[in-house]
Design a binder for these strands. Structure first.
Lengths: 247, 247
DNA sequence: CGTCCTATTGAAATTCTTCAACACTCGTGG
DNA sequence: CCACGAGTGTTGAAGAATTTCAATAGGACG
């Protein structure tokens, strides 16, 4: 899977707004030539959302796509009587927006403060038609989301509350620092969600999440200097706690 | 989303093995021209798997792709200590096999007797490169699987045992007969899974599944003439049971 | 007819939720 | 500077839902 754009881009050709953007390399924009990037940049708008702000409401027509520049976005489904389940978390430089689909199947909300770079549906749809590599990247992101959804299905269906919470911390740690698992020492990071969102993601109540975090702390697996900060004291033990008892 | 192939195909040009195949119209093969279909048909092999037979084991290298001709295939994940979660069910004419991915992330097993039409990875990968519509269809199937996975995340995380079982019956009924929901009368179908598979899909035990089916029967929502047959007596009530109490 | 596989049912045990009280932090305004 | 309130998180005790363990039943097949 190529992560290099198909054509060497001189920095001077790259639109100003795209320089220093993570999405240009690792995100979908990495598939675009300088010319295509310039075409897209003509229509982009940057926007910042506050915590809890809706980016799209369930059922909204999707008129624009976006790349996440920073922050964490949650995708949430609701039952008729108001129970909520977070079905996906997206980080920079993830692409937001459903290709082909006319409607969003869930609410899209800022979990933290979020910055995005958005552009009209139509602009990207046109570029997709002339650029197979772009189509490929969008498909690759969908496959990644599918893998994550299925990992969480296993957790939601078959793992205990303690395993789910450990699994979540492991997941976040890896997202924030992919090399963390290879290090021996302590790893520290901020949880980008409040307890209520963790509960909605893990299919638990906030009380249960809190109790399981306390248990992990008491078991010396993690430290919790404050509500949002986690220090993983032993990555292997965290992983064990996430996977459950060995076969 | 186009469901018509890009080029009119005279039946006489269609390879013998492809005639009367559901995948040729509704599946990924619908994107292929007669020439491409012929190219693919040169390498296809049909195969039948018995109930519970593995099509691919977790971690296997994927050397071949396949279309399901008939039957139901389950995608299952396992924890280290043997707990199982079914993370997807596939029906004819679904495509089996992960594009780009080198490894399967789960076990692929026959839930019923299954017939497939398989072909080498490489053959399809080559066709994908020269046919954007094929790429598009593969992406569309991935998106459909993602939607289903997320629907089940809501059920696994936030729905009660009774709601999950009703939700499952509703899902199967719709898959077998998409017009069923519009009919007023009774709808009858066979559950393609045994209780153990239903439990693994719903994140429950077989005992709980059995008890919830009994409750649905006692509530006059369904009849169970035998272990595999379900008669939905009132589709609306089944839907209500699946969605939970209205807001 | 006995055995295997599958499914159902009951009773006890466990896990998680619910309800309720309390603690901490942060910003605002007296 | 401190009091107040809102938002967030923790902890305890009681309750509910689901699992576990155990017994039983029915069908398919040799």
């Amino acid at each position: 899977m190529s992560t290099i754009s198909r054509q060497d881009i001189h920095n001077s050709d790259v639109p100003l707004v795209c320089r220093a953007c993570e999405a240009r390399h690792k995100g979908v924009c990495g598939a675009l030539s300088a010319v295509q990037l310039a075409e897209l940049a003509k229509h982009t708008v940057k926007h910042t959302y506050d915590v809890e702000a809706p980016l799209v409401a369930d059922g909204d027509k999707i008129e624009r796509y976006a790349n996440i520049l920073s922050g964490v976005v949650k995708l949430a489904k609701l039952t008729a009587d108001g129970r909520q389940q977070i079905v996906g978390l997206q980080f920079a430089p993830d692409f937001l927006g459903r290709p082909f689909g006319l409607q969003s199947e869930f609410d899209v909300q800022a979990a933290t403060e979020v910055r995005v770079c958005s552009f009209p549906r139509q602009t990207l749809d046109k570029l997709v038609q002339e650029n197979p590599e772009l189509q490929h990247r969008l498909h690759a992101q969908t496959l990644k989301e599918l893998d994550e959804a299925r990992d969480w299905m296993l957790a939601l269906g078959r793992k205990s509350a303690g395993e789910r919470v450990a699994n979540f911390l492991y997941f976040i740690a890896n997202h924030i620092d992919p090399e963390a698992r290879e290090r021996d020492g302590e790893v520290q990071f901020e949880i980008p969600l409040k307890r209520a969102d963790m509960a909605d993601f893990l299919g638990l109540t906030i009380e249960t999440v809190s109790r399981q975090l306390t248990k992990l702390r008491q078991a010396q697996v993690i430290d919790l200097p404050n509500n949002r900060t986690v220090v993983v004291r032993n990555f292997g033990r965290l992983r064990n706690a996430a996977e459950g008892p060995a076969g």
